[in-house]
Amino acid sequence: MSETVTVTIEMEQAWRYASGTAMERFSEGLKERRIEAVSCRLCGRAYLPPRPYCGKCNIRMSSWTPVKDEGELVAWTVMQLPMLDGRTGEMREAPYGMGLILLDGADTTLNHYLAESDPAKLAIGQRVRAVWCNERRGAMDDILHFEVIR
């Protein structure tokens, strides 16, 4: 086969992304370690992340409900492979624990890191609690990870 040419290019992509009012309120709350969901008056679901419309009922939502920074681990994994961190484009080193967490007061789950990375010590149904960063900027990584409390 004749020579084939490939060209490698490193590109930097920049964004400017607007949260919308619901996510703004939620993000501002994180600075104060406050988690709020928005709930639908028809189906009653309390949504995280908050958003303007209920996708099931297709109506506008404006009712806020407090959510605890504690909840139940409903799914988990331990990543054994470095994965790309979408905030930077850098790889996150493995192993690290990750879970779907049903926070008390919410009806949808939150995907976040777990402090525990030993698969033998993780189980569905465990109670977990947020570990907050001291410096908070109003973003999901104001929560460092969740730790198992029992």
Binding site: W15, Y17, S19, M23, S27, P49, V74, A75, W76, T77, M79, L81, M83, L84, D85, G86, R87, M91, R92, Y96, M98, G99, L100, N111, H112, Y113, I124, A139, M140, D141
Partner: peptide
């Protein structure tokens, strides 16, 4: 490509298709 999701919510967690599946499979 997989990681370029909602920057306010999803993008914090380095998950990929693999991680998302693993979570759902545990359930």
């Amino acid at each position: 490509g997989m990681a370029l999701t909602d920057p306010f919510w999803d993008r914090t967690v380095a998950s990929g298709a693999l991680g998302n599946f693993a979570l759902s499979i545990s359930q």
